[in-house]
């Protein structure tokens, strides 16, 4: 009997860190935890999920589910949920997640709490109570469910530490047949066009330097690149800088861009609107260079310099060069 079903993901046969975070979060709810996995060659991921304390691991093995489109993955998990009737379904808001959660919920006629950062349970009602940022992070909401249907909860990535592999591997393995039919066939992917990322991936970098509206143009980003290279980090940008065309949109950090949690996040000419902070609030040390002392970024930063980046940045870079 699975009360809480974690929608699992795998990368190259290994359990994704988003799934490990969901397993940790599931520990805040009462009931047995199951993890659903889709694809082929799932043995390693099954073992990992089991050692993280999942009571049951459900595998849906099909080559059609290797790197599936969101349509196919929703069909598979929708059928799994109809068979198991879990009380709570946990989904991570990774690139499929923003789409996947609502699609799954609507296919089940279920309610959905989007983009939550904390979850717990109401002792009286037994329903999930979740905390989520709204209005771009300017306000926080506590939400719960009504009615008796399944409760789908989408968790923002990096809200919980990944579960560690310290349980006895005693989870049950259950193979589940799903009928994928023609799901996903109505949409054809023609080609993937990507800029080849140089150096460290933004999400993986421990040092990120980002520029915003205050930089005034594309050129200063060359200095940021130099700094990032020097410190083995990556460069990001605010949405304003991307919309202005100074850098490509895949540099965008924020609510609708990338979510990062580096050790050091150095911002230059970024005011720190809540929509931007939503993508970087997991950073352990925010450092701000901005000319406006009243800018919101200083409310979040550990260290700050108030002044003209044109003068601050070169001497900063020069000193860093001497130090490393």
């Amino acid at each position: 009997m699975t009360d809480i079903l974690v929608v699992g993901d795998t990368t190259n046969g290994k359990l994704g860190s988003a799934t490990a975070e969901l397993i940790r979060a599931a520990g805040n709810l009462v009931g047995d935890v199951g993890v659903g996995l889709a694809g082929s060659r799932l043995q390693e991921a099954v073992r990992e999920a089991s050692s993280m304390g999942a009571q049951t691991i459900y595998t849906m093995e099909s080559h059609k589910l290797d790197d599936p489109s969101v349509y196919t993955k929703v069909t598979a998990f929708s059928q799994l949920c109809q068979q198991l009737e879990p009380r709570v379904i946990l989904v991570s808001k990774n690139s499929h997640g923003l789409d996947f959660g609502p699609r799954l919920a609507f296919s089940l006629g279920a309610g959905l709490a989007q983009d939550c950062i904390r979850i717990g349970e109401d002792d009286d009602t037994g329903r999930v109570v979740a905390t989520r940022p709204v209005y771009g992070g300017s306000a926080m909401a506590t939400v719960t469910f009504s009615g008796d249907g399944p409760q789908v909860v989408v968790l923002r990535e990096k809200s919980y530490e990944p579960a560690s592999q310290d349980s006895l591997e005693s989870g049950n393995l259950v193979q589940v047949e799903v009928n994928l039919g023609s799901s996903g066939d109505q949409v054809k992917s023609v080609r993937q066009v990507g800029s080849v990322a140089k150096g460290v991936r933004l999400e993986d970098a421990e040092f990120v330097v980002a520029g915003g509206r205050g930089l005034g143009g594309a050129e200063p980003f060359a200095t940021l690149e130099e700094l990032a290279n020097l410190l083995g980090g990556a460069v990001g940008a605010s949405r304003a800088a991307c919309d202005a065309g100074w850098v490509n949109h895949n540099y965008q950090v924020g609510l609708t861009g990338r979510t990062i949690s580096p050790n050091v996040y150095l911002t230059v000419g970024i005011s720190g609107a809540s929509q931007h902070m939503a993508g970087c609030s997991g950073s352990r040390n925010i450092i701000a260079i901005n000319k406006d002392r009243e800018a919101n970024i200083f409310k979040e930063a550990r260290f700050g310099v108030v002044g003209d980046w044109n003068a601050i940045l070169p001497s900063f870079l020069e000193t860093v060069r001497e130090l490393v």
Partner: peptide
């Protein structure tokens, strides 16, 4: 009638 209800809203 809502499936999801807001029980609290506050400025952090």
């Amino acid at each position: 009638s809502p499936k999801v209800v807001v029980t609290d809203l506050y400025v952090p």
